[in-house]
């Protein structure tokens, strides 16, 4: 993977740079921000996160398992008290609910990890430690021929530092 990375100190400069990069249709653009910034969302036009599907599926599996384990265990080892139902859905709703929350939340985390592609063992090219501090980073995938042109564009928009990486 080859590309150009730029560090910006000002948010609006980085937003304008990304806007122009997208307009000119260079390669994939990745933005690094110390904190989530909604300004980039519109410019990048990223799709809705699919994490919610993980939550839904996990939650449904959890609630099913919660009810199932309580009902199955009750039937397998029946404790008949006062002629009451061996499996009773009212108290078992507690297990349904708790396991729904447990599996739903853990699936959400798995969904976030899978979609964000973490854990990552090595830092990929294009990252700079300043991007977790006070700088905004823009990484653009380019061909060797485009690198100079993209670097000039980023500098024109006020990038503090621009460098090519591979």
């Amino acid at each position: 993977m080859q590309g150009v990375v730029a560090a910006f100190h000002e948010l609006d400069s980085a937003v304008h740079a990304v806007e122009e990069l997208k307009k000119r249709k260079y390669g994939d653009v990745t933005v690094y921000t110390p904190t989530p910034r909604h300004e980039f969302e519109d410019v990048l036009g990223a799709p809705e996160s699919p994490v919610r599907k993980f939550t839904l599926v996990g939650g449904l599996c959890g609630v099913t398992f919660g009810y199932w384990i309580a009902i199955w265990c009750s039937k397998y080892w029946p404790l008949v008290v006062g002629g009451k139902a061996v499996a009773s859905w009212v108290p078992y709703t507690i297990f349904g609910f708790e396991v729904m929350v447990l599996i739903g939340a853990l699936s959400t985390v798995i969904g976030m990890f899978a979609n964000s592609r973490i854990p990552r063992l090595t830092m990929t090219v294009g990252y700079d430690p300043r991007f977790s501090g006070g700088h905004f980073g823009v990484w653009v995938e380019t061909t060797p021929e485009q690198a100079e042109e993209v670097s000039a564009l980023l500098r024109r928009h006020g990038a503090e530092e621009v460098r090519s990486e591979r």
Partner: peptide, 9 residues
């Protein structure tokens, strides 16, 4: 976990 503060993350 190799967090990079990217827009995707």
């Amino acid at each position: 976990l190799g967090w990079r503060n990217s827009d995707r993350e």
